[in-house]
Each structure stands twice: as structure tokens, then as C-alpha cells.
């Protein structure tokens, strides 16, 4: 019995670690570019996935692993505070949506998925995570421009607009793709 609990614990840890690895891998694949520059990447998906499956804490740990992993694989650093905000912080907050996901049960009584609820939970998790990540990037932008831009320029507005440019499409794509993934997971377990 004791052994089974330990296997479960180790399995959860390994799944979180591999999800973060998948996220780092996906961040290196640019699937499509946006017409006005910038690109959509799917690195947030595995983090949201873990947040739905194992809750907020696991999601935040997966996000932290992703942030530190990206840092180690060669990040661009222009300011010490920007380093902390743009990498570990921005990705850790992605998992916070997971704390709310457990409030809504996605399963029906006969253990099948309730499609509408899966959509609801996915959108909630993606929305909370993305908005928080956006806020952290905006803050980081403000720190960066406060240091490097001349005084008297409208720093906050510029940071808000610039970061929205890639976060909004990322949010939409993540929400669209998370639903089939969560449902496919259910099919895998029943196997």
C-alpha cells in the first residue's frame, strides 16, 4: 500500500517535469507567424493541462520549471528585474487558474466528460493564467522602459499595447486547443 502511494507521488512529479519539458520543446517550435509580426507558440498548453489535471500547485510548479528551463536554454536578459519577471514569474502564474479548476467537476455520474463543463474549465484556466502572465509581462515592460526610455514617455501604455499583441492570439489558441487535449486524456485513462 505504502509503495503505491510513493509510485503515485513519483508519477505526478515525473508528469509535471515532462509537461514542462514538452512546454520548452513547444516554445522552440513556431507553428505560425502572425501577419503583424510576432508568433503564436504553444508553450502554455502543457502547463494549463497540468493545472487542470493536478490543480494549481502542480500547475505553478510546472510553470516554474518551464521558466527556469527557458532561462537555461538561452534567454535574453536586459535587466536583472526583467530576468526574474519575464522568465520564472511570468510562467509560474500560468498555473494559478488550476486553483479554480477543481471547483467545477468535469465528469458526469457515469464517468464520461461533460463537454460544456470541460470548455468552461479550460477557458477559465486559460483566461486566469494568460491574464496574470500578461500582467507580469506588462510590469516587466514598465521596469525595462523606466530604465532605458527617456523620461516623460508613456511607458505603461506602450507596454500594455506591445504585450497584448502576442498574448491575445496566444490566449485564443490555447483555449481552442486545451479542450480536445483534456478530453483525449479521459479516453487514454479508460483504455
Amino acid at each position: 500500500m505504502e509503495k503505491n502511494v510513493e509510485i503515485k507521488r513519483v508519477l505526478t512529479m515525473v508528469e509535471i517535469a515532462l509537461a514542462a519539458a514538452l512546454a520548452v520543446a513547444l516554445s522552440n517550435l513556431k507553428f505560425f507567424h502572425l501577419p503583424y509580426g510576432g508568433s503564436v507558440s504553444l508553450e502554455m498548453l502543457p502547463i494549463f493541462y497540468i493545472a487542470i489535471l493536478y490543480g494549481g500547485t502542480a500547475g505553478c510548479v510546472a510553470g516554474l520549471l518551464l521558466g527556469v528551463g527557458q532561462l537555461f536554454f538561452g534567454a535574453y536578459v536586459v535587466h536583472p528585474i526583467q530576468l526574474v519577471l519575464d522568465y520564472p514569474m511570468a510562467f509560474t502564474v500560468l498555473g494559478i487558474g488550476g486553483f479554480f479548476a477543481t471547483l467545477i467537476s468535469m465528469k458526469k455520474n457515469d464517468d464520461t466528460f461533460d463537454y460544456l463543463r470541460v470548455v468552461l474549465v479550460s477557458v477559465l484556466v486559460v483566461f486566469v493564467g494568460s491574464v496574470l502572465r500578461y500582467a507580469v509581462h506588462v510590469l516587466s515592460g514598465v521596469v525595462f522602459f523606466a530604465e532605458y526610455a527617456p523620461e516623460g514617455s508613456n511607458i505603461l501604455l506602450y507596454s500594455l499595447v506591445y504585450n497584448a499583441g502576442y498574448m491575445v492570439p496566444n490566449l485564443i489558441v490555447a483555449a481552442v486547443l486545451l479542450v480536445p487535449l483534456v478530453i483525449a486524456r479521459g479516453a487514454l485513462i479508460k483504455r
Binding site: 509510485i7 513519483v10 508519477l11 512529479m13 515525473v14 508528469e15 517535469a17 515532462l18 509537461a19 519539458a21 514538452l22 507553428f31 505560425f32 503564436v40 504553444l42 498548453l45 502543457p46 493541462y49 485564443i172 489558441v173 481552442v176 486547443l177 480536445p180 487535449l181 483525449a184 486524456r185 487514454l188
Partner: peptide, 25 residues
């Protein structure tokens, strides 16, 4: 375009998590 990525992501996720199970054991 996002929807076209589903047939890539589902095998990728499932393979990763099958690997995770083997690794944990």
C-alpha cells in the same frame, strides 16, 4: 489553423505521459 494542430498535440501529449508512467515506475 489552431484546430489543425490537434492531430499533432494529442499524440505528442499522450506519448509524453505514457513515457512519464514508464519512467516513474
Amino acid at each position: 489553423r489552431a484546430k489543425k494542430l490537434v492531430p499533432i498535440l494529442i499524440p505528442l501529449f499522450n506519448l509524453s505521459f505514457i513515457r512519464a508512467e514508464e519512467l516513474a515506475i
